[in-house]
């Protein structure tokens, strides 16, 4: 029994780390621009497809393929902000939401043409044998995923704390008007936030590629779950995103293992409703929920 629970925990933490990166993408964009991007899941899909093409297809070294797909997806994020979001004349939130949905359909359509309707897979990052921990197996790929996510979180933290640009972005998040009054170029910050959050999605995709089948339509559910994770931790709070992602991953794995696999997809949304009823601002979020 203990062994089983440990096994669920391992797979939960692995999935949770991926949800956490996707949630970080949502949160980062939301705190700087108060926008929720429904194309975030599509960035994850693009990251996964990019990695498979560059690494398996073009035989590039893993590190290079990783970097190129992440940068590529960040570039798509930049384009989206420039071409679609910036050009809106009346930036009413519902209008922006529908534009991101349009973008998500567009990206999905492009991916279907580029990669076809078949599912693709990627090998594990390295060929180490799985580890045995107290009778449960821990795939080496899981260690890679957790390691990379921790590195990303630390890098992000350093960016916010140490660099001037990161501080400027935080200032924008706290009060956009005041930030622009003291000379922070808030438009550039929006652009940067789009690129960074798309890049986060891309990293999520790169990480998820070896542990699942990837296809053009994988983005929606991953995006929605990453979104649930962000809400769970507290939208706009980076640590909340990490916590929410982990919690979602672990509870999902436990739910599937201990109850029924038909529950799997429902757990994220049950948690979402639960947190909205009990504490809409999320576990680590601020009290105030007056955004929009």
């Amino acid at each position: 029994m203990v062994q089983e629970i440990l096994q669920y925990l391992f797979s939960g933490v692995t999935n949770g780390a991926i949800y956490a990166v996707i949630a970080l993408g949502f949160t980062m964009l939301f705190s700087t621009t108060s926008l929720i991007n429904f194309a975030q899941g599509e960035f994850v899909m693009l990251g996964a497809m990019g990695l498979i093409t560059l690494w398996k297809g073009f035989q590039l070294p893993l590190g290079v393929a990783f970097l190129l797909s992440t940068l590529g997806v960040a570039g798509v994020g930049l384009l989206m902000e420039r071409l679609a979001i910036r050009t809106v004349r009346k930036p009413h939130p519902i209008v922006l939401v529908i534009i991101t949905i349009g973008a998500s359909i567009l990206l999905k359509g492009i991916a279907m043409i580029a990669w076809g309707k078949d599912a693709h897979s990627a090998p594990a990052f390295s060929r180490h044998p799985p580890l045995e921990v107290a009778g449960a197996t821990l795939l080496f790929q899981s260690l890679w995923i957790i390691l990379i996510v921790v590195a990303v979180v630390l890098a992000l933290q350093a960016f916010y704390r140490k660099s001037l640009t990161g501080k400027a972005m935080q200032a924008c998040a706290i009060n956009r008007k005041a930030a622009s009054l003291i000379g922070i170029p808030s438009e550039k910050m929006t652009l940067l936030a789009f690129a960074l959050s798309a890049g986060m999605g891309g990293i999520g995709g790169v990480l998820v590629a070896p542990i699942t089948m990837s296809s053009y339509d994988m983005g929606m559910l991953l995006g929605l779950k990453g979104f649930c994770a962000a809400m769970l931790g507290g939208l706009g709070n980076s640590w909340g995103a990490v916590l929410g992602g982990m919690l979602l991953g672990i509870l999902e794995a436990m739910g599937v293992g201990l109850f029924s696999s038909s529950l799997k997809d429902a757990i994220a949304f049950l948690l979402l409703l639960g947190i909205l009823y009990v504490r809409p601002s999320g576990i680590l979020g601020e009290k105030a929920i007056h955004r929009f």
Partner: peptide, 20 residues
């Protein structure tokens, strides 16, 4: 009681659960 995006997300969650 929720407003804005939070209401959107709550209804989204309900819709997904109904679908499941």
């Amino acid at each position: 009681k929720l407003s804005g995006y939070y209401l959107g997300m709550g209804t989204l969650g309900f819709g997904m659960i109904a679908f499941i």
